[in-house]
Amino acid sequence: MFLGTHTPKLDDKGRVILPAKFRQELEGGLVLTRGQERCIYVFSMREFERVHEQIRQAPLTSAGARDFLRLFLSGASSEQADSQHRVTIPANLREYAGLGRELTVIGAGSRAEIWDTAAWNEYYAAKEADFASTTEEVIPGIF
């Protein structure tokens, strides 16, 4: 499970060292793809296969499902960390997420997310107060 907030740096070759706590989960390979709110989703290969199978269940007659599938998969890149635990983020994904040198990598349970630090700070500032004052059930069965 991916948890926590980490602040690695993007090197000049577009590589990032993913947090040590995430390495065991990702040792079988990983998939990077576009995420919502202009971040990059990081899935273990196993979790990406599970998510892909769920997506495949969507009806082909659904324009929204087709659109999502196209954007989600066309941006996906299968990667393997090198011996120094660095992962290359493809240029198209770095551009999509507006990544600079300063990154924030967050754990989001079944995936990690890579954010440009300024974008993460802006998102966090906008959402934290809403989170702290949540008074209704947002996710069924939780709280």
Rank of each mutant, 00 (worst) to 15 (best):
D12K: 12
T7A: 14
S74M: 13
E25C: 00
T134P: 01
Q36P: 08
P8L: 06
L93H: 02
T33G: 08
A129N: 12
D130E: 14
T134A: 11
P140A: 14
G28R: 08
I139M: 10
A119P: 07
F68W: 09
K127E: 14
T61K: 11
P8E: 04
N121D: 15
V16M: 00
H52L: 15
S77F: 04
R46V: 10
T117F: 05
F143Y: 14
L26E: 04
A125L: 12
L99M: 04
M45F: 08
A119Y: 08
T61S: 14
C39A: 07
F43W: 15
I139H: 04
E47V: 02
G100D: 09
G100M: 01
H85Q: 14
V16C: 01
S133M: 11
F2H: 03
E37M: 04
R111T: 13
H52G: 09
N92R: 13
Y124C: 06
N121Q: 15
V138W: 12
K13R: 13
L26D: 05
A108Q: 06
R94C: 05
A118R: 14
T5R: 11
A132L: 13
D12N: 12
A97G: 11
D11R: 01
L69M: 14
E122F: 02
V31S: 04
E79T: 00
E122N: 12
R38W: 06
L30R: 01
P19A: 06
W115Q: 05
E47R: 10
R56Q: 15
V42E: 02
A58N: 12
G4T: 02
P90M: 10
G28P: 00
H6P: 02
G141K: 08
F72Y: 15
S78Q: 14
R50V: 08
K13T: 00
R56F: 07
L18C: 03
K9P: 01
A58I: 13
G29D: 00
L93M: 01
R34P: 02
A129I: 06
P8C: 04
F48Q: 03
E47T: 11
N92S: 15
R70D: 05
L3F: 07
R56T: 09
A63T: 13
E137M: 11
H6D: 05
R50L: 09
G109A: 10
E102Y: 08
